[in-house]
Design a protein around this nucleic acid. Structure first.
Lengths: 304, 304
DNA sequence: TCGACTTATCGGATAATCCGATGAATATCA
DNA sequence: TGATATTCATCGGATTATCCGATAAGTCGA
């Protein structure tokens, strides 16, 4: 007859609650089964662990002496078991991430590829969607976390800054702006401007109006997707404005980009997750990898 | 299905020996039972702990990671179990006993010496104190148990009779009372009486008054300690009365003692412990040794 | 004095564990 | 190359351990 973990857990539960009945409830067994466990443990050890009366129990001297020791041992063991569970979940987890279409086709494939090289059994599911729906998908639990530009504060959603980057002008090689190191917003008026529809551009207009007290974005054309805008720029139909996390796509279209100044207007991007909810080990791990990638790539401008 | 200690011990045995068959032998079970234990553990954890081939096994990465942690946990647990076994086997332990000063310098040193001869690893700590404070020290848990004369009944304190002995007269060799086999209380009035102060003597007076309906103790001198009274008797200043558990001290002073009769008045001594509380193995063992000593020595009058 | 509460014990039902035999895979040797 | 030895996994039946619900005994409070 050996000491069992069940007996030890029963001992700790009784010692903590001071009651066989309460301890049995906490372990989801009947009081009589718990009585048996403690009896077996006392018999195995050959000592009395509790002094019983019909109304209260007390740890014996020996019981009092070993309680902290057994408590620590069980805590250590549960720590190991938690660690194993984490490793298991990380090894075989699924991570669902929502991101706007532009991030989904630029930044994220690279991050996912790097992560998958190290964790081949973790399944990263990327859900590309409209900017406006990222946070609602996070909130509903459809995804583990989302990426996107600044949204209205929401107590249900935790927003952690991922990066902050300035707007850039995008144009074809040989364009009049190519010789410039930087491009002023005012210089854009000489060229047909192609912008994206929606809140993103509306907020940019507000920022420029505030900073310049005159002038405004006056797009010749508005389109839905950045890939459309870049195609039109490549066809010589105008210039567009873009944030450099999408530099890989700009390069794919063989276009040039320059920082926009006077004023320098930036946009901040965040990782959104549900407030008060922990991520699975795999999701947490991928999130960390994402932050690591951004920390290393910084301005997104310097490599192939 | 919970993790069990048997599974964990099996894991360590296999990891150490690198073989299911050898590990099974070391645990005194068949190889097939051991196979089942490891299988259950792997299923409970949801991870592979060993990579098997038909001729050799290897710890998996996870198995290698948790091996030292589980090894330490089992070592800690075995340390606690050894500790308990040592306490049980009286290979260690501390016993704290409270007794009045007179018992502390007569009866108890002999009992302790005899007990220590048999259990050299048990530490007996004797706390000599006033008669009145013995039970309060027991109640507070400062000591494991206490000795002393009858106290008022108290539901928190358990009192077990240790011995009951008659009062004796004590006088120097050559004294007028030496030729007597017994001494009557009435014979004491012819000699200056030296008594102890306090409740002990007050209760004796009540007992004598009840038994004799006349007369009373009329001490010429009262002192605090029996050793003082015995010194004065040895100096020829009178006689004193004493209970024969202190015979060793009487003999040290080279005094004689005789039973007091007409009436025979006795005093009962008890072992006091906390009601509803168990004693540690060492305290219980020493308590039993004490009762054994008293049973053997009976009247405390017959030996060097 | 009765009702409420607590721990211990009992008998029967159920679950877990073990053994010995066997199978599948691999390595070694003549 | 075939025979033999070795190892871990699986199986079915026997045995052991565990649990539940009912009940008993003791204590406390209204």
């Amino acid at each position: 007859m050996n000491i069992t973990l069940r007996q030890l857990r029963a001992f700790i539960a009784v010692a903590r609650s001071g009651s066989f009945t309460l301890a049995a409830e906490s372990l989801f067994i009947t009081q009589s089964a718990l009585s048996g466990l403690i009896k077996e443990l006392e018999q195995s050890l050959g000592v009395r662990l509790f002094d019983r009366s019909t109304r209260r129990i007390q740890l014996s001297d020996i019981g009092r002496g070993i309680y902290p020791l057994i408590d620590k041992i069980l805590a250590d063991l549960d720590g190991v078991l938690d660690e194993v569970a984490n490793l298991k979940a990380l090894k075989k987890g699924v991570v669902r991430v929502a991101a706007p279409q532009l991030m989904a086709c630029t930044l994220l494939p690279e991050v996912i590829a790097a992560y998958r090289a190290e964790h081949p059994q973790v399944d990263i599911r990327l859900i590309d969607c409209a900017v406006e729906s990222v946070t609602s998908r996070v909130f509903s639990g459809e995804v583990d976390f989302g990426l996107g530009p600044e949204r209205d504060p929401n107590s249900d959603i935790d927003a952690t800054p991922l990066f902050e980057l300035p707007f850039h002008a995008v144009f074809p090689p040989g364009h009049a702006l190519t010789a410039r190191e930087t491009v002023r917003w005012a210089d854009l008026v000489d060229h047909p401007l192609i912008t994206l529809q929606g809140q993103f551009t509306e907020r940019l207009s507000v920022d420029l109006h505030t900073a310049m007290r005159e002038g405004d974005l006056d797009p010749a054309t508005t389109v839905t997707f950045m890939s459309t805008a870049l195609s039109m720029v490549a066809a010589g139909l105008g210039v567009t404005i873009c944030i450099p996390y999408a530099a890989s796509l700009v390069r794919l279209y063989r276009l040039d980009m320059r920082p926009l100044v006077e004023p320098v207007v930036t946009r901040r991007f965040y990782v959104f997750s549900r407030n008060g909810r922990s991520l699975s080990p795999a999701a947490q791990s991928f999130r960390e990898a994402l932050f690591g990638y951004v920390a290393r790539e910084g301005a997104f401008t310097g490599h192939p």
